[in-house]
C-alpha cells in the first residue's frame, strides 16, 4: 500500500493519536479511559503508520521491539503489585503517596497508576506485535 493520501494523513494523525492515548491513559482514573483504551488508541495510530509506510519503517521508527514493550508492561503491572507484598499486605493492594508539586495542588500517586501504565504497555505491545507480524507476511 503506497498511498500518498494515507501517508500524509498519517503524518498528522499519528502524533495526535499518540498524544490522545497518553491523555486518555492518565485521565482514565476519573473519566472514561484507562490503560486498555489508551493502549488501543495508541496501537491504532501505530497500525496506521505500519499500513502507510510499511512495517519495516514502523519498526525503525519505534526503535523498541513490541515484545519488549509487552514484557516491560507485564513486569510493571506485576511489580506494582509486589509493593504491597513487601509491606506485608496482600498482592496488588493499592498504595498511595501524596506528591507535592511546587506551585500546584497535591497529586495522589499510587501503585494502581503504575499498574494501569503496565496495562497500557501490554495492550500496545500485543496489538503492535500482532499487526506488525501480519503486515510482514
Amino acid at each position: 500500500m503506497n498511498s500518498t493520501i494515507l501517508q500524509t494523513a498519517t503524518r498528522y494523525l499519528l502524533p495526535m493519536l499518540l498524544v490522545i492515548s497518553v491523555v486518555v491513559l492518565f485521565q482514565g482514573h476519573n473519566l472514561p479511559g484507562g490503560g486498555f483504551i489508551a493502549g488501543l488508541i495508541g496501537a491504532s495510530g501505530l497500525a496506521l503508520h505500519g499500513m502507510a509506510f510499511g512495517p519495516k519503517s514502523t519498526r525503525e521508527a519505534l526503535r523498541i521491539n513490541p515484545a519488549t514493550v509487552m514484557g516491560v508492561g507485564l513486569a510493571a503491572a506485576l511489580g506494582s503489585g509486589l509493593f504491597a507484598v513487601f509491606m506485608g499486605l496482600p498482592l496488588l493492594t493499592g498504595i498511595w503517596f501524596n506528591l507535592e508539586v511546587p506551585g500546584l495542588k497535591t497529586i495522589k500517586v499510587g501503585t494502581p497508576v503504575i499498574f494501569d501504565i503496565g496495562v497500557y504497555l501490554v495492550v500496545l505491545g500485543v496489538v503492535m506485535a500482532i499487526v506488525l507480524s501480519l503486515l510482514e507476511e
Partner: peptide, 18 residues
C-alpha cells in the same frame, strides 16, 4: 479508598487488579 472517580477503571486497576 482508590482515589478514582471512574468506577469501571478503578475496578480494573485496583479492586480486581489480580
Amino acid at each position: 479508598d482508590a482515589y478514582g472517580r471512574n468506577v469501571v477503571n478503578v475496578i480494573l486497576v485496583d479492586f480486581r487488579a489480580l
